[in-house]
């Protein structure tokens, strides 16, 4: 660990190129951003702008046969690029949690939730199976999921997408990673589940001090949760700053267009009635 950095994540000159017959095609122009402890960084951009690619590059999940990447990604001062694949595997999950867009694909359908939960916990921490089950039950209960005991015996396809996504967050909560990468965590969910997932993400940040990289194309999600925003367009960061600043004084025309495409009708209608409370 290098002394003097309070940044959990530092990304510098991160660049990704696609290997093709016609040579290297740049997919990500050199990116640069930092994230402090307990903060949430929102990445917005249209589909195909390189949001997910950035996440995969941070996690070093790119296919080396297809992609070439360069630049430095530092987690708590440690350069992830210099680690071996084996070391990287211990970091994924334990130090960088990740939540993917489609929770159905993130679990294997042939094992129960419980066995996948316990497997993840025991890979990263030295605990007995009983302890792991106990932890899992506590984490699921804190996630407001009903009947954790029964839930552990179920298969992924037997429960809804929103519940699965909360199981994913529960796993992350047990491992208390300093960084969580949430790639479109609510896109596949309905609005009520969406709010629940956002609430739990926020709780993870409050209780464990986790920093979160939150990728979304929904400005509602960003304005609810993010502290800082990075706007991506065609593989480049076109704008970055505090969330209020991006919303109030968007500089880049793409950001302005994004803000214009919010359904604004709702605001006038809501302002006339009582404010929303939970």
């Amino acid at each position: 660990m290098t002394a003097g950095t309070d940044h959990v994540l530092e990304v510098e000159h991160l660049q990704v190129q696609l290997k093709s017959n016609a040579g290297l095609i740049p997919l990500l122009e050199p990116l640069r951003f930092k994230l402090q402890k307990g903060r949430i960084l929102g990445i917005v951009g249209e589909s195909g702008s390189g949001k997910s690619l950035t996440c995969h590059a941070i996690l070093r999940l790119l296919q080396p046969r297809q992609m070439e990447w360069s630049g430095t990604v530092r987690l708590n001062g440690r350069d992830l690029g210099t680690l071996s694949d084996k070391e990287m595997r211990t970091i994924r999950g334990k130090e960088i949690g990740s939540i993917m867009q489609n929770p159905m694909n993130a679990f294997t359908p042939v094992y129960t939730i419980g066995s996948q939960f316990v497997e993840t916990l025991r890979t990263h921490t030295r605990i007995s199976k009983q302890q792991a089950i106990q932890q899992a039950i506590e984490a699921l209960a804190s996630m407001n999921l009903p009947d954790p005991h029964k839930l552990l015996k179920k298969y992924p396809f037997q429960i809804s997408g929103g519940m699965l996504q909360r199981v994913m967050i529960a796993i992350s909560m047990c491992l208390k990673p300093p960084l969580l990468i949430a790639d479109e965590p609510t896109t596949a969910l309905d609005v009520v589940n969406q709010l629940q997932v956002l609430r739990e993400l926020d709780r993870l940040r409050y209780e464990c001090g986790t920093s979160i990289v939150l990728v979304s194309h929904d400005l509602g999600v960003i304005s609810q949760l993010a502290d800082e925003v990075v706007v991506m367009y065609k593989g480049q960061i076109v704008e970055q700053g505090e969330v209020a600043q991006i919303f109030d004084q968007p500089q880049h025309e793409y950001t302005q267009m994004l803000l214009r495409s919010r359904p604004t009708a709702i605001i006038d209608r809501l302002s006339s009635s009582t404010p929303i409370e939970l």
Binding site: V191, V192, Q194, L195, L198, R199, D202, R203, Y206, E207, D218, L219, G220, V221, S223, Q224, A226, V243, A244, F247, R262, T264, I266, I267, L270, I276, E277, L278
Partner: peptide, 21 residues
């Protein structure tokens, strides 16, 4: 009411306050 309460804010200043906060 649940559907209405789940409408996300248009601007960071209108955030929904979560109970753990």
């Amino acid at each position: 009411q649940k559907l209405i309460a789940a409408i996300l804010p248009e601007h960071p200043s209108e955030r929904i306050v979560f109970d753990h906060q």
